[in-house]
């Protein structure tokens, strides 16, 4: 039986490879829930102690600075709020007058980032609320500075946010002043760019870029970026417009989910 140990060893290797192949197929199968389940399990068992530790340290560091910043912001915001309330009333009156539907109204539900997935640049983030907290796929995520992304996957207690800096995420936008429509994309080479903007479009450095509301996922009017530089080559149909994101994706922390109240 000199051959027995060899065959047994081979069989053991075959068994190990088969298990890995089965795991691969279970995870790779389209629509499979095994991948998200394993991700959730791993987040609960391995990541949660570090998330809690990190949150604790960050909250200690940030309290004093945040407090002072928020006091300043509150004073400025309350001044702005008064004028905005007036403008809203006027807008409602005028909409009623010309027969427009009421715009959708949103509530901000605060969420906390527990982890950011980076592959050279932040691509997605996990937030501390999920299906049991009423989070749904495709809900919009914002920060106090502007649009951050959308909910991509929802797990029972957490959810994955696809950030605007994910190359697979594109969003329809407008130049706030000229109302010109374009598409914001992100690539590692050029950073955030405004695509599909005609060569004769009126856009200049410093212009605010806001979400257009087209596409049905993101509501209109959310700040996305500011124009950083404009390149218009002769003979080209579109301009290359490089943008400076409204949100610093390396420092995102407290975010809000836009919950449609209608």
């Amino acid at each position: 039986m000199a051959w027995f140990p060899t065959v047994s060893h081979k069989n053991r290797r075959l068994f190990k490879f088969s298990l890995i192949a089965i795991l691969f197929l279970l995870v790779a199968f389209p629509g499979s829930t095994v991948g998200p389940f394993l991700g959730n399990l791993s987040a609960t068992i391995f990541y949660s102690p570090f998330f809690k530790f990190r949150n604790y340290i960050e909250s200690l560091q940030n309290v004093a600075v945040e407090n002072s910043r928020l006091r300043n912001q509150l004073a400025q915001m309350s001044l702005q709020l008064n004028s905005l309330v007036e403008a809203r009333r006027e807008n409602q009156r005028l909409r009623k007058f010309i027969g427009f539907d009421a715009p959708p109204s949103f509530r901000l539900a605060p969420v906390k980032i527990v982890s950011v997935m980076q592959h050279f640049y932040p691509l997605s983030a996990i937030i501390n609320k999920g299906k049991y907290d009423g989070i749904k796929a495709n809900q919009t995520i914002v920060s106090p500075f502007g649009l951050v992304g959308k909910i991509k996957e929802v797990m029972p207690h957490t959810a994955t946010v696809q950030l605007l800096t994910d190359p697979g995420n594109a969003i329809s936008v407008r130049v706030a002043d000229s109302r010109q429509i374009g598409i914001v994309k992100f690539s590692l080479e050029n950073g955030m760019i405004l695509d599909n903007l005609p060569a004769d479009a009126n856009v200049a450095k410093g212009d605010l870029i806001i979400s257009s509301g087209l596409g049905g996922i993101y509501p209109s009017g959310l700040p996305v970026a500011r124009v950083d530089s404009v390149y218009a080559n002769q003979g080209e149909i579109f301009k290359l417009v490089k943008l400076r994101p409204a949100v610093n994706f390396f420092e995102i922390d407290e975010l809000y989910v836009l919950v449609n109240e209608l």
């Binding site: 795991l23 998200p36 991700g39 391995f46 990541y47 997605s124 994955t160």
Partner: peptide, 21 residues
């Protein structure tokens, strides 16, 4: 490597098969 692949892809389950392989 299988367990590490799951941990590495926790925040992006769509890349889990690639990590495992």
């Amino acid at each position: 490597s299988s367990a590490a692949a799951i941990i590495a892809a926790t925040q992006r389950p769509s890349s889990m098969p690639w990590e495992i392989i």
